[in-house]
Structure formats: structure tokens, C-alpha cells
Amino acid sequence: MTAQAALSESRASKLMKTIGILPFVLVLTCVLLALYEPRFLRTSNLINVLRNASFLTIISAGQMLVIIVGGFDISVGAIVALTSVSSALSMVGLSSMGIESAGVIVALGCLMGLIPALMVGIANGFLVSVLKISPFMVTIGTMTIAAGIAGYVTGGTPIYDMPELFTREIGRGKVFGLPYIVYAAAIVLAVLWYMQNQTRLGRYFYAVGGNEKASRLSGLNTRKYIWLAYVLSALLAGIVGLFLTARVGSGEATLGSNLMLESISVAVIGGVALKGGVGRIQMVALSALFLAVLSNGMSLARIDSKYHIIIIGLVIVIAVAAESFRESRRSNHV
């Protein structure tokens, strides 16, 4: 082998190491889909994919933050449901109280939706960081509690009659041809990218997740960062809850029931390591896009929705097995 070939090969493998195989798989999937199913490339379909990817990106971003500090957030789906129910009930209540301005109703309603979400996040953070309870148990507990409350408050029936401003404008409106949720996801992506790459806060999150004891001994208030991660995760889940409520046009206690699994899958496929300390928002966003494309493709190809979860499960296994294979090869080389 010539020196040049060796050099270019090492460059290629370096590239692979930094960005992984996910972008290639994503592009390949898109190309195959476009060839097999031309409807994939229709503008309306692409916007649909982008919208689903945006929901997934936001909720998985929160999941990523929590996994980076060495935890889990199983309660995100229930937070979505709770936010949905609480915001819808407040909006209906406020408009029956005789408030005229739709803007005020929507603003207050969204606020009332986010408050219970934040409360769950604060409770999660407190129980995990201060009482040192296993995050799995804590968030399973808060999940059942939040989902139970949401189901109890609605009595199992959806809540309708929210202002048009909310359901039509925020739920279905577009700016420059793209739904609002896409901009929301872009903002989340930009802010988190900045935080992870440019700020101390981002470094602290990695440090706490990588080695909590070392971080504490070197003077970091590890509790604060773990707590903050859970609150941020709940807040992001709450935002998803608001957009989803606007999208479906009713407050539902069953909204977001798949999102817990999907957010963890997205994070894991995006290379966030469950042992903590590793994970990049741009990879999580790519992975969200990948899952959105995949499920869109399966729908276009008329694959029964029952097979979807089988295929997504297989993708998770393959992604993680590939990751652990790469890791073991890396550690063998060193």
C-alpha cells in the first residue's frame, strides 16, 4: 500500500469516527425511498417528515440531556399527556370565564400547560439528584402518577373547544412554507449545539455524566446540573405537548404514549451512550430525522403499522450492536 493510500484511508476512517455511519444510512434510505416511491419527494410529504422529525428532535433533546448526566427520563410521554390536558382545560376554562382576547387565552393556556410539566421535572430532579434514587424508578413513578392524573382529570374523553388561534394557527399554520414546530426544533437544536460546544454549562453536563465523583471532587455542584437536566427534559417535553395538542386539536390524556420509547430510541441510535457523558445534539437530530424518514417510508410502502415497531426494534439492536462493536475494536487497538 502506498503512503498516500494509507493516508486517505486513515482520513476516511477518521471521518467515520467523528460522524459515524448514521448520515450515510440516512442518505441511503432517502435515495432508496425516492427511487422506490416517488411520492416520498412530494413537498407535502417532505414537510410531513420534517414535522415528525421536529417533534422527535425536541423530545429526544431532553432525553439526551438526561442520559448525558447518567440518567433516564421515562416520564417524558406522560409529561406530554399532562401538558396537553392541562393546557386544553385552562384554555377552555379561560374562555368560559369571559376573556375575549384569543391571544391572552392561548398564552395563559400554554403557561398553565408548562407548569405541571416543570413540576414533574423538578420532582424528578430532586428525587434523583438529592435523594439519589435510581432515575429509572423515579421516572417510572412520576410517569404513572402524571399519566394517572391526566387520565383522571379528563375522565378518558378528549377536551375540545380550544381557540382557533391555537388549533389552526399554531397547530397547522406555516411560516415560509414550514410549520412552526420546525422552527421550534431548529431553535432547540441551535441553542443546545451552542451550549454543548461553546459554553461551560455544556462541558459540566458531560463532566457530571462522565465521572460524577471526579466532577464533585473538583468542585462542581453535580446536584445542580443533574437537577437542571431533568427540568430541561420536562420543559422540552412540555413544549412538544403544546405543539402536539395544537396539532391534534384536542387535549388528550393518551397523547405521547409512544414518545418515551421513541425518544430513548432516537437518543441511542444517535450515539448517546447510556453510561453517560457522551452525546451530541446534531447526531440526535439526525437520528430523529432518520426515524421519521423510516416510518414515513414504511407507511408509503404500505407496510402494516404493526410491523413498524418490529422494524424499529431491529434498528435499535443493529445500531447499538454496531456501536459496541466499534467500541470494542477501538479499545482493542489501544
Binding site: I312, G313, A321
Partner: peptide
């Protein structure tokens, strides 16, 4: 997958849960 593949049990069983639930409904 857990013992020989050394993959985190949470992820392994999350994935198999998804797969076998799908098989059961299918």
C-alpha cells in the same frame, strides 16, 4: 445480546420488547 454482545440490558430488552410486541399483534 446482553452477556455475549455486552449491550446495555435496558436497550436490549427495550428493543426485544418492541419486536415481540409487534410479533404478538401481527
Amino acid at each position: 445480546l446482553v452477556a455475549y454482545g455486552r449491550i446495555n440490558p435496558f436497550i436490549v430488552t427495550l428493543a426485544t420488547m418492541s419486536i415481540f410486541t409487534g410479533v404478538a399483534t401481527t
